[in-house]
Amino acid sequence: MSTLSDSGFEEDFSASPSNCLNCPWSEDLNNRLTADHHEVICDESCFIIQRNNEEEFLALNCLARQPQITAEARCKLVSWLIAVYKHFKLSFESCCLAVNIMDRFLVTTSVAADCFQLVGVTSLLIATKHVEVCCPRIRQLLSLCCNAFSKEQLCNLECLILLRLNFRLAAPTLAFFLDYFISQELSWHRGAGKDHFTDLREVKKDDSWTSTEEDQLSIVERYKCFACKVCELSLADYAFNKYQPSVIVQSAIMLAKDWFRKPAYFKHTSSAKMVNTADPKLPDSISHTLIQQCTEELKLLVSLNLESIQDLIAL
C-alpha cells in the first residue's frame, strides 16, 4: 500500500523535483511540453473560452473583508512568491495562478496576519500541482518560511482552499494571455512581410535597414520579456486587481513596443497617445478607454521600478 509523499502525491510517483529537472530527458521533455503548450494557447477557441471566463475568476476587492491584511502586506507576499517561483525555476503560469488562487481565497475567508504567508505558499503549491510536471516538496516550501508552519497546517489549509474555490483552478492568467498575444504578434508580422517590421528600423536608426525573420523573433522576444516583467510588477500591486488579465497584458505589450521604439518616448508622451491608434493584432472587444487607463497606471508603475528592468532596456 503506497503512502503519501512529502509532495502530496503517492510515493510511486514521487520523483524528486531536482532530479526530474536535471534528468537526461528533461530538456527534450520541456521542449515538447513547451511546443504543445504553444499549440494549445494559439487555439482561437481556447482564447475565447478564457476571455469569457475572466470575469468569473476575477478576485475584485479581495482585501475588502480582510481586517488584518493590507495592500502593502499583499505586495510583500506576492513579491516574495515571485522570488520563490524563480528560485524553483517554475513557469510564470504557476506564479500567476498562485496569486489568483490566493486572491480568490481571500474573497471568501478572513486570514490572520501571521498566517498570510502560509496562504501564499499553499496557493503556490496548489498552482504547481495544476501546472508543472514536478512541483516543489512541502518541506522545501516550508523551509523558505523559516519552518514557521507545519506540514499538517499546510495540508489542512490546502484542503480548505480547494473547498472554498470549489476545486475550480483553471483560471485565465496573465501568463496565458501573454503567450497568446505574443504568438499573435509573430503570426501577424510574418503575414505582413519582413519589410513591414518597422520597430527595428527605428531602434537601429536606419531607414534602409531590412529586418530578417531572426531579427523579428528577437524583438518580439524582447517585447515578451519586458511585458512579462511589467506583468510581474502588476501582480504585486493591488491597484491592478481590478483589471482583467487580458487588459493588463495588452497594455503591457503596448508599453513594451513604445519603450523599445523610442526610450525617450516614455518621459515625454502620455499613454493616451500610445493607445489611440488601433492595433490590428489585438481584439476590438476591449474598451480602448480601459486599456488607456491601465496603460497609464502601468507606465507609472514602471517608472517607479526602473531599477528592476534595467537589464531589459538595453538593445
Rank of each mutant, 00 (worst) to 15 (best):
T34F: 15
A272C: 10
Q68T: 05
L90I: 02
L165N: 05
H38K: 03
L304Q: 10
D258C: 08
S234C: 10
E10M: 11
E72P: 00
L157D: 00
T295M: 01
D12S: 12
H37Y: 04
S271M: 11
V107Q: 14
I291F: 09
C294L: 05
D258H: 09
T198N: 15
P67A: 03
C135T: 07
S271R: 07
E55P: 04
L315K: 10
E11V: 05
L300S: 15
L174I: 12
A171K: 01
T198F: 14
L298V: 00
L217T: 09
R51L: 02
E55I: 06
D114V: 02
Q293C: 08
E214Y: 11
C134H: 13
V107E: 14
R65D: 11
T108L: 08
N305R: 01
F13N: 14
R222P: 01
S234P: 04
E93R: 10
S45T: 10
E232Y: 04
A272P: 03
D199L: 13
I182H: 11
F167N: 14
W209E: 02
P280T: 06
N22I: 07
S5P: 04
L290P: 03
F116Y: 07
I49V: 08
C145N: 00
C20M: 12
E10R: 10
S187G: 05
L255Y: 05
H189R: 12
